[in-house]
């Protein structure tokens, strides 16, 4: 049951405590304590500074404090040994580090996506996926991503990429969107508990979003009974029309049975019509609780109020 007031106090106290604790922490120098400067590195690795020049990692950073300047050794540790014995094995390379090691390294300056807005599980955790799995530091793509279109996601999510070739799909192949259009890792779209995981969907499909006067609980993750849009739609692609998981009435029957009266009324309503022929406002209705088409009366009898049994237009 809902308990107003008291439940909010504890989390707020925790939040305030964390904020105070966080702001009381000590600063951390970005550059590692090393005597090897950039010029020494570039004497062998000529040209690497150009790949960084247009990025926040540029070596010519106009840092106000030397301690916050970005240097080669900020990311590549062990340079003292490497200078004397220039082997690929004795220089720190994020690609060769553990995923948690990379995250810890990048977190020296950046907040991991999970720290900003992530809650619950991180699906990439435990899969040897780290920052450098998606980001390439020595390139100038936006956000230092491996490519502009998010195609790098498909390097691991092989099956998901093929879903966009099914009968109905989101327009990935038409380049009208990318993986990042929905799967946002920066925390700006999540968390949205209570008003819906579908918050992701309504950014582009706001007309399907409520609150409606009469909700379809399955479509609203505001309700404990609903899983939101994903109750009925497969977002990547589907062998059915409109990304539906099942065609026709089968979709409704995954939760609903056929009301007994539908077998007899109107000469066997249920056998002659699809559910959504009449219950067409499946996302929610501002007209009636049964989610019926407000024009149903007109369609059946030619009169707006001809479908009086269902109280269409009122309620």
């Amino acid at each position: 049951m809902v308990r107003h007031g008291r439940c909010m106090r504890s989390p707020l106290r925790i939040l305030c405590g964390l904020l105070v604790a966080g702001l009381a922490c000590a600063n951390v120098a970005l550059a590692q304590d090393s005597e090897i400067d950039n010029e020494t590195c570039l004497s062998c690795h000529d040209g690497y500074e150009l790949s960084l020049e247009s990025t926040a990692h540029r070596l010519t950073a106009e840092a106000r404090k030397p301690a916050t300047a970005v240097a080669c050794v900020s990311c590549h540790g062990g340079a003292e040994v490497h200078v004397d014995d220039p082997s690929v094995d004795n220089i720190g390379r994020p690609q060769a580090m553990t995923s948690s090691g990379v995250e810890a390294l990048c977190a020296s300056c950046h907040q991991p996506h999970t720290a900003i807005g992530g809650v619950g599980s991180d699906p990439h955790a435990g899969q040897d996926i780290s920052c450098v799995s998606c980001h390439t530091i020595h390139k100038n793509h936006g956000g230092l991503l491996k490519d502009d279109e998010g195609a790098f996601c498909g390097q691991c999510h092989v099956a998901a990429v093929n879903d966009f070739e099914l009968r109905s799909s989101h327009p990935m192949t038409a380049q009208a969107m990318t993986c990042i259009s929905c799967h946002d890792f920066t925390g700006t779209k999540s968390p949205d508990f209570g008003h819906g995981p579908e918050a992701n969907c309504i950014g582009c499909h706001p007309q399907q979003s409520g609150p409606f006067m009469h909700e379809h609980q399955a479509a609203s993750s505001f309700s404990p009974e609903g899983d939101g849009c994903l109750s009925c739609h497969n977002p990547h692609g589907s062998p059915n029309e409109r990304l539906l998981a099942q065609p026709g009435d089968a979709l409704c029957f995954q939760c609903h049975g056929t009301p007994p009266a539908h077998m007899t009324a109107h000469e066997g309503l249920a056998t002659n019509y699809n559910c959504m022929d009449c219950h067409s406002n499946v996302h929610g209705s501002n007209d009636n609780q049964a989610l019926l088409d407000p024009q149903l009366g007109t369609m059946i009898s030619g009169q707006p109020d001809g479908c009086f049994c269902h109280n269409v237009g009122g309620f």
Binding site: L12, I14, L15, L18, L19, A21, G22, L23, A24, C25, A26, V28, A104, A107, Q111, T114, A115, I116, G117, G187, P191
Partner: peptide, 19 residues
């Protein structure tokens, strides 16, 4: 939102938020 390492324990990172 806020995020920070725990004082004197740099390997413990805390985060919190309100919306």
């Amino acid at each position: 939102t806020a995020s920070a390492p725990l004082p004197n324990y740099e390997n413990i990172v805390l985060n919190a938020g309100f919306q």
